[in-house]
Simulated assay, not measured.
Amino acid sequence: MVMRWCATTFATLALVACNASAPSDAIAQRPAAGAEALSPAGLPLVPLTINSAGKRHAFTVEVARTAQEQAQGLMFRTELAPDAGMIFPFPTVKPASFWMKNTVISLDIIFVRADGSIESIAANTVPYSLDAVSSNEPVAAVLELAAGRAAELGIKPGDTVKWQTER
């Protein structure tokens, strides 16, 4: 009886482990008709554009809405597609400060004012660093992209960011 219980428990655990979805998966879950698209981490996916020097750069970003989602951010991710990212919208405009604790990949951290303009960019942040990466003034959101994307696309302070908000 104990042997049968152990075998059943082991088989169940093996199935659960094989079906677990790692947060670094790059493929989004396909939503049901009328439902919101979700990332493998369970966060909403929305289109986001950055207008810079007459060019429009399109991304699909995860939205970290809650304090818990924002605290987790892109920690433990091992990759981030060039057209992907994460937006951290705040309920009120405030000074923002981030760190890279448990963040495996380097990021460009873009601070966004309430009018959608880019306040500043912390480029190529250092993985695992406990140093604060902060805005210079109160902001309405923070956008994280793969390191080097802002420079590669010519994105700079003053450019504008737009993303789909709550439905």
Rank of each mutant, 00 (worst) to 15 (best):
I27N: 09
A37R: 13
P31E: 09
G73I: 11
I87L: 04
V63N: 12
F59M: 05
A35G: 10
N102V: 12
K101C: 10
G54W: 07
L45R: 15
K94L: 10
P91T: 09
L48N: 01
G54P: 05
G73N: 03
S39G: 04
A84F: 11
E36P: 05
V61D: 07
E69T: 00
F88V: 01
S97M: 08
A53M: 12
G85T: 06
E69K: 00
G85A: 14
M75R: 09
L43M: 14
A41P: 05
G73L: 13
L80F: 03
K101S: 04
A53T: 05
Q29P: 02
A81S: 09
P47E: 08
K55R: 15
F90T: 11
A58E: 12
H57D: 06
A71H: 13
L74P: 06
T60F: 14
R65H: 13
P91D: 10
A71M: 10
P82S: 07
T103S: 12
G54H: 06
A64Q: 02
D25W: 04
N102I: 13
E62R: 06
L45W: 00
F98W: 12
L80A: 11
D83C: 06
I50V: 14
P89T: 08
A53F: 11
L74R: 03
I87V: 15
L45M: 13
N51Q: 09
A41L: 05
R77I: 03
A33V: 08
E79V: 09
D25G: 11
P31L: 07
L80I: 12
Q72S: 12
A67G: 03
F90N: 08
R30F: 14
K55L: 09
F90P: 12
A32P: 05
A32V: 02
Q72P: 04
L38M: 12
F88K: 02
R65L: 09
A35S: 10
F88S: 08
K94N: 15
A26L: 14
P47I: 10
F98V: 11
M100P: 04
Q70V: 02
E69M: 15
I27Y: 11
P40A: 03
F98Q: 00
G34F: 05
A35Y: 01
K94T: 15
A26W: 06
R30T: 13
P91V: 05
F90C: 00
A33Y: 11
W99K: 04
Q72V: 14
T92S: 06
F88P: 09
A26G: 01
V63I: 15
L38Q: 12
A84C: 07
A28E: 12
E62S: 04
G42C: 04
T78W: 04
G54L: 04
F90L: 15
L43Y: 10
V63K: 04
T49Q: 15
L74Y: 06
Q70A: 14
H57P: 01
S52N: 01
A37W: 08
S39H: 00
K101W: 02
